[in-house]
Amino acid sequence: MSFLRVDGLEKKYDDSFVFSHIHFSLEKGEFVTLLGPSGCGKSTLLRCIAGLTQVDDGQLFIDGVNVTDTPARQRGIAMVFQSYALFPNMTVRENIAFGLKMQKVPPSEQSKRVNEAVELVELGGKEQRYPSELSGGQCQRVALARSLVVRPRILLLDEPLSALDARIRKNLREQLRSIQKELGLTTLFVTHDQEEALTLSDRILLMNNGKIIQNGTAEEIYTEPADAFVVRFIGNYNLLSAEQAHQVLGIQSQKQVAIRPESIYVREEGRQYPEHVRHPVRGEVVDYLLLGNVIRYRIKVSNVELLVDLLNRSSERLFPAGANLELLFNTHEIREVDEENSAIG
């Protein structure tokens, strides 16, 4: 049985829905990411799960118990905020101990658990500092320790890394993931950054306009996008209208067609291609971008521009702008997708 079950949650402000028909569940120890563009309702959903905001309809179960009407502080849920939400008048140590103090944990036990938490987030030596004396990354570690020290049943994180700069963000997210694995914490992580979601999660819930569009592993979301929104949001995909698909590939489709840049090949003389690599067309290189081990070409086929990723092998020559090439398509990777469903309700 799933550890957290969200069953038909619905929330509206002044008659306009923030989200509706939200169904999903988390297994114990799972790290799930709630991914979606800004304003799609992620924070509101998280706050509803935490009990900080009232839902209008639907139910919430933790470990089989209905907690829909349970007050926030009795749900055993901890939350980390984008703004850190540390208490500026308290030292690192006092911040971390706050939850234990509220739960009237005996002082000796408090001090032991705070020490463990400080150790876990690698903040040794900073215990007596105030939040104003810490960097953003350190603040977020304190916030994490403060949430973990009370041993929550579920950890919610609302864009915890978004306010940090790239290098610290990457560092901290790996650390977060390893702590989560070590403690076996059931975690729901909110982000609008698809790269963060794809690299971190056991599973991704993709949200748009107050609806969960797709629920699957990073691999599934990347290779089997549910609709045109997912294709656009995950990025880099070639998305062709039915008409363009006919023009380029010669296929008849009622829907839009999505093609990943790495599933398009440049024909090389004398090389044998498998049966499913077909649809030869000629195109002209517009320009290219070096992305480390990959070169991303923009190639114009009739009047359609395609992104094509080729491995950057030093032996292989670079195709200059204007070069005329023959392209082949991996038909297994051609996806027909529905237009995004933008209506809420």
């Binding site: 706050r47 935490a50 900080l52 926030a72 502080r73 849920i77 901890a78 939350m79 905020f81 703004s83 939400a85 208490f87 706050f98 939850g99 509220m102 739960q103 916030a143 403060r146 009370v150």
Partner: peptide, 12 residues
């Protein structure tokens, strides 16, 4: 808002 939310979730 965030400070009070955090405090509530921690049991205050």
């Amino acid at each position: 808002q965030d400070m009070l939310d955090a405090a509530h979730l921690l049991g205050a």
